[in-house]
Design a protein around this nucleic acid. Structure first.
Lengths: 342, 342
DNA sequence: CAAAATTTGAGGTGCGCACCTCAAAAATGA
DNA sequence: TCATTTTTGAGGTGCGCACCTCAAATTTTG
C-alpha cells in the first residue's frame, strides 16, 4: 500500500467511507470524537489526499481573481502582463485566473468589488493593493466567507490575508544600500534617493533599509533627502536639476520607484552617465534598456511571473489544506546587472 | 464545451473512442489517414489532454532517477540535498524521484547505469555530469529507448538530451566580471581567479566570460592566471600564498569553484579581509557564512531547488508531449550579497 | 472472388476522489 | 421510557482518461 487511499483511511479509522468524506471535506454532522478518530488515522497511516483526483472529481476549475490597480506606470503594466500570461498557461492546470483592475485612488473601489464575490463562484483572490481601513474590512469579510486570499507585492498585514507573496522591502533597500556602498569609492560620497512618492508601495521601507545598510557599512557616505516625483515628469525633472546643481559632487542615485526614464534622460543630457552610480527598482522596458546601454549599474527586482504562479499555488494549497513549500514560494530579491539580464 | 474531452474529440474526428485512444497513446494498428483525421480534429477543437486524469488512470507514478556524481564537495552535497528535499515534496504530485550517485571519475560508471534503465520502469532521468564519449552514447541509447532526459548544471550538448536546465556559465562569468569591475576603484588593479580545476564543470566558460566583461568595460584591470586548487587544501593554500606575495597589491579575487573555506581562512589569517573584493560561486554553508561575516562581497549562484523542480516539470511535459513554459523553467544567474540572502 | 490480414468500433473496468440519497444506528431530550 | 434529533453507514454516480476484449467492418492478398 504505497499510497493509502480514502478506503484505507476508512478501514484504519474504523469508520465508513462516507464519514471519511465528511471529515476530509469538513462537512457538518460529525461528532468531534469521530473527527479525531479520522485525523489520528490520517497521521497513523500517513494519508495524503490526491489533489489530482480530488480536482477531477470536483469537476470545477479552481477559480481565482487577481485584483491589480489601474494606472499607466510601467510596473503595473508588467504585473498585468504577468497575470495574463500566467492565466493562459494555467488553463491546462484547471485554474481559471481572471484579471480585474480597480481604481487605485479610490479606497472603496476594491473593497466594493471584494464584497461582491460569492464564495461558491470564486476559490481565491490575489490582491495587489495598499492597505486602507475599508479594504482591510472587506478582506476580513471575504475570508469569513471562506475565500482564500493572498496579498502580492505589498503586504496587507492587518487584513488577515492567508499569505503575502513578495519581497521584504526593507531587505531590498538594504541590498541596494550595500551594493551602492561597495560600488562607490572608499572616501566621502553623496547619494541621492528618488521615488514617485514615499506613500507609494513600500518606498518607505526601501529607504529605511537603504539608510540602515549605508549607516552600518559605509558611514562615510551621505544620503540626501528623498526626491519625490509624484508621477509627474516636470516635477521630477525640476527636482533632479535642483539637486544636481546643489550637489555637483553627487556620486550615486538610488531610484526606488518610477521616473527612471526621466532621470536617465536628464543624466544623459547633462553628460553624467557613467559618472554616477545608479541603482533602480523593478525590471521594465526602461530599466532593461538602461542596463543594456550601461546607463544603469544594477536593478533590484522581483520575478512577477513567479509571484503570480506562487500566489496561485498558495491559494490552492490553502483551499486544499495542504502544506506550503516555503522554499519554492519564497520570492527572491534579485540583483540584475547587464550580464545576467536573461 | 469549455474543455473538450476525448469524447468530444472522437465526435469531431468522426471516429470511435477506441481509435482516439489508439492515436493519443500511439498504439499500433491505426492507418495514417485515420491518425491524420484525429490530429486535425485535435487542432480544430483545441483538445488538450488532461494530464491529471491521464495520470490517475495510468495509476503509475511518474518515475524519475536523478544521477549526481559522488564526491564530498559542498556543492555536490547541496545538489543531493535539493534532490532529496524535492523528492519528498514530489510524492504528493505522484512523482517518484530517486537519487542515484555514481563514481564521477569513471566515465563508464554512469554510462553503465544508464544502460540498465528499462523504459517501462523509468519515465525520465536527470543527469548532472560532464560529457564523455561513453556517456554521450549511453544517453543516446537511453533516448532511443524512449526515456526522457535532461541535463542539469552542466550541459551535455552532443548527447541529444531533451533539455538543459541550468545557467549559462559564460554569462555567469561575465556577471562576476562586471560586478568586480564596478566594485573596484577606477584606476589600475589586479584580480586573481581561482577554481578547483579548469576541467571541472564549467570553469572554463566562467573564466572566459569574466575576461570578456573585464576587457570590455574595465580594461585597466589586470586578470591574473587561474589558480587551480585541485580539491587539495595544501595545494591551494600554497598557490594562494605564492600569488599573494608576488602581487601584494591584489585587489580582487574571483573564485569560480570550490576552495572558498581555505581561501577565506588564509585571507583572514593575513588580515586581508575587507581589503580585497571577493566574488565566489554557489551558495553553500561556507559562502553563506562568508557573506554574513562580510568576508565575501558577492556570491553568484543558481537555485538548486528550482533546477530540480524544473527538471521534473520538463521531463513530464516531454513525456506528455506538452509545451514547456520557458519563463518558468529559466534558471536565473543570481547575485547574492549579505542583504538578499534569505 | 473468397480467404486472410488489418483496421475500427462498441463496450466495459477502474484510478482516487467528491457528492448525493436513504436508511439504520446511536445519542439526546422530555 | 419513548419520541426526537443527531450521527453514521451503505451504496451509487461520474470526473477524464488508460487499457482491455471481442466482434464487426474494411482492406489486402492469392
Amino acid at each position: 500500500m504505497l499510497r493509502p487511499t480514502i478506503n484505507d483511511l476508512a478501514d484504519a479509522a474504523g469508520v465508513s467511507l462516507a464519514t471519511v468524506d465528511r471529515v476530509l471535506n469538513s462537512r457538518p454532522g460529525v461528532r468531534q470524537v469521530t473527527v479525531d478518530k479520522v485525523n489520528q488515522a490520517i497521521e497513523k497511516i500517513g494519508f495524503v489526499r490526491d489533489p489530482f483526483a480530488a480536482n477531477l472529481a470536483r469537476k470545477r476549475d479552481f477559480k481565482v481573481i487577481a485584483f491589480v490597480p489601474k494606472g499607466n506606470g510601467q510596473f503595473l503594466t508588467e504585473v498585468c502582463f504577468a497575470v495574463k500570461k500566467t492565466a493562459k498557461a494555467a488553463i491546462a492546470d484547471r485554474v481559471d485566473l481572471r484579471l480585474e483592475q480597480f481604481e487605485g485612488d479610490d479606497p472603496h473601489a476594491l473593497a466594493g468589488s471584494l464584497d461582491l464575490i460569492a464564495p461558491d463562484g470564486v476559490d481565491g483572490v490575489v490582491i495587489m493593493a495598499l492597505e486602507t481601513p475599508p479594504l482591510r474590512d472587506a478582506v476580513r469579510r471575504l475570508r469569513a466567507r471562506g475565500v482564500a486570499t493572498v496579498a502580492i507585492i505589498s503586504d496587507l498585514p492587518n487584513s488577515g490575508v492567508d499569505y503575502f507573496i513578495g519581497i521584504n522591502n526593507l531587505a531590498a533597500g538594504r541590498t541596494a544600500g550595500s551594493l551602492m556602498g561597495k560600488m562607490l569609492p572608499q572616501g566621502k560620497a553623496k547619494v541621492a534617493v528618488m521615488t514617485s512618492s514615499l506613500q507609494a508601495w513600500d518606498s518607505l521601507d526601501r529607504r529605511l533599509g537603504f539608510d540602515q545598510a549605508i549607516a552600518q557599512g559605509f558611514s562615510q557616505i551621505e544620503v540626501l533627502a528623498t526626491i519625490e516625483g509624484h508621477d509627474d515628469p516636470v516635477t521630477l525633472d525640476t527636482a533632479l536639476r535642483r539637486m544636481l546643481s546643489t550637489h555637483p559632487d553627487l556620486q550615486g542615485i538610488y531610484s526606488m520607484g518610477g521616473g527612471n526614464r526621466v532621470m536617465m534622460g536628464l543624466l544623459a543630457q547633462m553628460g553624467l552617465i557613467g559618472k554616477i552610480r545608479i541603482i533602480a527598482h523593478e525590471l521594465t522596458e526602461t530599466t532593461r534598456d538602461g542596463l543594456r546601454r550601461d546607463q544603469l549599474d544594477a536593478v533590484i527586482t522581483q520575478d512577477l511571473g513567479h509571484i503570480i504562479r506562487s500566489a496561485i499555488r498558495t491559494l490552492r494549497a490553502t483551499r486544499d489544506q495542504r502544506p506550503i513549500m516555503a522554499e519554492q514560494e519564497r520570492i527572491r530579491i534579485e540583483i540584475l546587472v547587464k550580464d545576467n539580464l536573461d
